[in-house]
């Protein structure tokens, strides 16, 4: 009888063990299948054509970096020449001083000052089944809303990941990337804004723009942080300021 009791006990234990293993293996199988599906999808993207296109894009981005470096060097040389005459009381000195002020007003000069730094990044939440992945990443709309709220709060200069915003700047979504000026930017997006005191306070009470992005941050767990700073340093806009279609009206200087 004892032997029989012991055998039934082993059978009950073995049943529990088998159930646990079955559940664990089932879970493993489910996750592995999900992962395999996404791997298949991802792997299928990396074709030879895709590899070639990616190499072209990298090459163009490297060329862009080089062109911007060269342009920045020429701009600096021009600024030195123009500044050299500012000390004297000549007509040239006056024009060059006004030119420096205009470049400052237009975002073409490196600036320092107090302000705020905002960082926003994609959600780390696991994508629920059936959800749109675009909900969980930072969109160009989010950046535009934050920028609009910063300007409205009194910002005098703004840069996103080092791209200074000027009169011709657009913030544009291209697939999963965000194009600012000529640069494709990736998260984390760092917005730096220089402006007078209480910039952060005024920014936080801007309802129209912050409402939409705040709702997305809350609903989809987008990463968001904001901090005030007393000594931000923003680069100048490095890009084309040439006018092909717009002609300054005579006598407007």
């Amino acid at each position: 009888m004892n032997v029989n009791h012991s055998a039934r006990g082993r059978i009950r234990i073995r049943s529990g063990w088998i159930l646990s293993m079955a559940l664990a293996l089932g879970a493993l199988g489910f996750v592995a299948a999900a992962q395999w599906n996404s791997e298949v999808q991802r792997t299928s993207y990396t074709t030879n054509a895709q590899q070639t296109l990616a190499e072209q894009a990298v090459s163009l981005e490297e060329e862009q970096d080089l062109l911007q470096t060269q342009l920045a060097a020429v701009e600096a040389e021009l600024a030195d020449i123009q500044a050299a005459s500012e000390g004297s009381q000549t007509a040239l000195a006056e024009v060059n001083e006004e030119l420096a002020e205009t470049r400052l007003a237009g975002g073409l000069t490196e600036v320092v000052g107090p302000g705020v730094v905002i960082e926003i990044a994609d959600s780390r939440r696991v994508l629920p089944a059936g959800e749109n992945p675009a909900n969980y990443i930072v969109l160009a709309d989010d950046l535009r809303d934050l920028v609009a709220a910063l300007w409205h709060a009194g910002a005098e200069a703004i840069a996103i990941n080092g791209e200074r915003l000027v009169a011709t700047t657009s913030i544009y979504g291209v697939g999963s990337s965000v194009l600012v000026n000529t640069a494709f930017l990736s998260p984390t997006f760092r917005l730096e804004a220089v402006g007078p005191g209480q910039l952060e306070e005024r920014f936080r009470v801007e309802p129209a723009y912050l409402g939409r992005v705040a709702q997305r941050i809350e609903a989809f767990d987008l990463e968001f942080a904001m901090v005030s700073s007393t000594d931000l340093r923003l680069p100048p806009f490095i890009g084309s300021t040439g006018l092909r279609w717009a002609v300054p009206v005579e006598g407007s200087e």
Binding site: W245, A246, P248
Partner: peptide, 22 residues
């Protein structure tokens, strides 16, 4: 002086500080 004046005209127009047509 001419070079600086022309540059000033262009930057003022680019930044929105001067009228333009086109």
């Amino acid at each position: 002086l001419d070079v600086s004046r022309e540059e000033l005209r262009r930057i003022r127009a680019y930044s929105g500080l001067a009228p333009v047509e086109g």
